[in-house]
Nucleic acid binder design. Structure first.
Length: 593
RNA sequence: GGUCUAGUAGCUCAGUUGGAUUAGAGCAACGGCCUUCUAAGCCGUAGGUCCCAGGUUCGAGCCCUGGCUGGAUCACCA
């Protein structure tokens, strides 16, 4: 409809004022609530062309549009704003159409193939709140892009090698050589994470002792025996030592088993999981080739560098003197492999904003190497989650653990549910399922409603709310509607397949239809801007509008059968939209709560 | 020091191609509404120099310039 209006405005300006304008300068927006109308055209841009007063231009256009479009019932002009009002037949037609055809997804003429990389944990510590934000954003963005019509490949790149895992391995040998998660009664990732903390404690103790005996701190950090042992282990790993590899595999598998539980709890999955141990050598050939083509240069010590000073990105090492790869080398290699293997149109990396520089460099290097798709790499950076006292530090145990937080949310939701006591007639397992849905819904919504690029502060002492602008509020609205639909069924009234277009509506019903109609637009925008927050806010608006309506009008006690059917139909569509919107955030909605 | 990013009510946040007297929600505070479709709801009261100063224009919370404050980054770690 908007596009149609824009076209007609362009036409009108040409006919009335004799000048051809670009569609893009026509501004069509939803009319503000304080004014009457549905869509508003801003006429200021045409005032100079018409050489008339804004009011006159608006009136000219209004008349022209009204004659061209059947659906416009009236228009009014305030200053330079032309407000168009559509007749109720138009809105009822839209509602019927959406109810019949809309399934929560759109189709695109030119869908892109998009890879989304997210999660990407280290295997030496359990997932914490920061990872939850990453996972939820990555998951939601993937869902949104898919719903917007794109083809999405979700991937996870696990950092399973390096000095950090060797530290946990060394601590294992030193402190609990015959231990296992089973014996300790822990999740595997927790068990390995604890070893990492033990390593750090021991390491700090050794440094302190060495400094005590007169060594400089710098030296002490190098000479501490446990650190030397860990470095030694890394060398053995790189050399392919079978014993070290066996231990490495055993411990990583413990961690994966733990991660899998957390992912399952969060409802997150991947199409493909990569491991750095398999990819960390890649990119070397590409860099060497780039060196031949003078994209890079070699220093006297044999290391290879990219000179990015022209782009204010300094100089960056891309290959060590001994020929081994770095983080950057590996990312160059994997990007090339992925674009070539998957024929990607776009690659989104969901990674914290601390790595903005890294991705700028990556993109620039790829473009210097001549890859046409370099600008199709998109770093979706998000802000860190901080505690009131500052950054989370897993080494010092100052973290909000992912599993603990999820469990607490579910417990809180269960407690609240029991107090309200509305699920008495459900099986225990069904009740638990609802508690889970709501606890997770509260957590996910809490995180996703915030603009991803902003850093957020989480105070563990103040638990996440279940009232107000929250996930459960929306879930509750959905459950309420489903309850009404169930009651109707008992009265032998089912939701009609469509409603007649001459139904008389009140203002709130009209508003609801308009909000329902917004969904596609919001979805498109959210997909374009990669912002789950827009979806979250949309769902909230819709739920709030419905709750007002629900409060003011009774559905099942409507004056006559025709109105009852219409209201049921409308409510049903609201519940569907809420369900679709929440699904884009990875949140399930219950039938009862 | 360079680069990037944020600053809106006591707290957490909306406010996107710059739009229309009165800048919106929620939480917290105070006061109302359950013999009526689910009160995890609804209504009301109170709460603001949109960090500051200039500029751009018909119009700025939004754009530009300069400052202030917080965060990130500028590693042969990933």
């Amino acid at each position: 409809m908007r596009r149609r209006i824009k076209e007609i405005v362009v036409e009108a300006v040409e006919v009335l004022y004799g000048q051809k304008i670009d569609t893009d300068i026509v501004q069509v927006q939803r009319t503000r609530k304080v004014f009457t109308g549905d869509l508003t055209i801003v006429v200021f841009p045409f005032v100079k062309i018409a050489r008339k007063k804004p009011e006159d231009v608006a009136n000219d256009l209004g008349l022209y549009l009204k004659n061209k479009l059947d659906h416009i019932s009236s228009y009014n002009v305030i200053k330079g704003f032309l407000n168009l009002t559509f007749n109720s037949e138009y809105w009822l037609e839209r509602l019927n159409l959406l109810h019949r055809d809309f399934t929560g997804s759109l189709t695109l003429q030119n869908p892109e193939k998009v890879m989304v990389e997210f999660s990407s944990p280290n295997t030496n510590k359990p997932l914490h709140l920061g990872h939850i934000r990453n996972n939820l954003i990555g998951d939601s963005v993937s869902r949104i892009l898919k719903a917007a019509g794109h083809e999405v490949v979700r991937v996870n790149l696990v950092n399973d090698r390096g000095i950090h895992i060797c530290k946990s391995m060394q601590a294992y040998l030193d402190f609990d050589p015959n231990g296992s998660p089973e014996k300790a009664g822990m999740k595997g990732d927790k068990y390995v994470g604890d070893l990492y903390v033990k390593f750090d404690l021991q390491y700090k103790g050794q440094i302190a002792d060495l400094v005590e005996s007169g060594m400089s701190e710098e030296d002490a950090k190098q000479k501490a025996s446990i650190m030397q042992a860990a470095k030694n282990m890394l060398q053995k790993w790189e050399a392919g030592d079978p014993e070290v590899h066996a231990l490495w595999e055993k411990m990583n598998n413990w961690v994966y088993a733990g991660f899998d539980k957390t992912y399952a709890q969060l409802g997150i999955s991947f199409d493909q999981v990569y491991h750095e141990s398999e990819t960390y050598k890649s990119g070397r050939e590409i860099v060497l080739d780039g060196l031949k083509r003078d994209v890079f240069y070699k220093r006297d010590d044999g290391s290879i560098w990219a000179d990015l000073t022209d782009d204010k990105l300094d100089e960056k090492i891309v290959l060590r003197a001994d020929g081994t790869s770095l983080y950057m080398t590996q990312d160059i290699g994997t990007a090339v492999a992925r674009f070539e293997n998957y024929q990607l149109d776009r690659h989104i990396y969901v990674v914290g904003n601390e790595q903005i520089y890294h991705f700028q460099v990556l993109r620039l290097i790829l473009s210097k190497l001549g890859y046409a798709w370099a600008d199709k790499i998109q770093h979706m950076s998000y802000g860190m989650v901080e505690l009131p006292e500052g950054k989370m530090k897993s080494r010092e145990g100052k973290v909000v653990d992912a599993d603990d937080l999820i469990e607490e949310m579910i417990n809180n939701s269960a407690e609240m549910s029991r107090e309200l006591g509305k699920l008495g007639d459900m099986l225990e397992s069904e009740q638990q399922n609802v508690h889970r849905m709501i606890g997770l819904g509260a957590l996910k919504y809490f995180i996703l409603k915030v603009d991803p690029k902003k850093q957020m502060v989480f105070n563990p002492k103040e638990s996440i709310d279940f009232n107000g602008h929250t996930g459960p509020f929306i879930q509750y609205t959905h459950a309420r509607i489903r309850s009404v639909v169930r009651k109707a069924k008992k009265m032998n009234i089912s939701v009609p397949p469509m409603i007649s277009e001459d139904t008389i509506m009140n203002e709130k019903e009209l508003d609801l239809i308009k909000t329902i109609d917004q969904f596609e637009l919001v979805l498109q925008e959210a997909a374009q801007l990669l912002d789950p927050g827009m979806i979250a806010n949309y769902a909230y608006e819709l739920a709030k509008d419905f709750n007002h309506y629900y409060h003011d009008y009774s559905i099942l006690k409507a004056q006559d059968g025709k109105i009852l059917q219409f209201r049921l139909f409308l409510a049903d569509q609201v519940s569907r939209n809420l369900k679709y919107a929440m699904a884009l955030l990875g949140i399930d909605v219950p039938e009862k709560m």
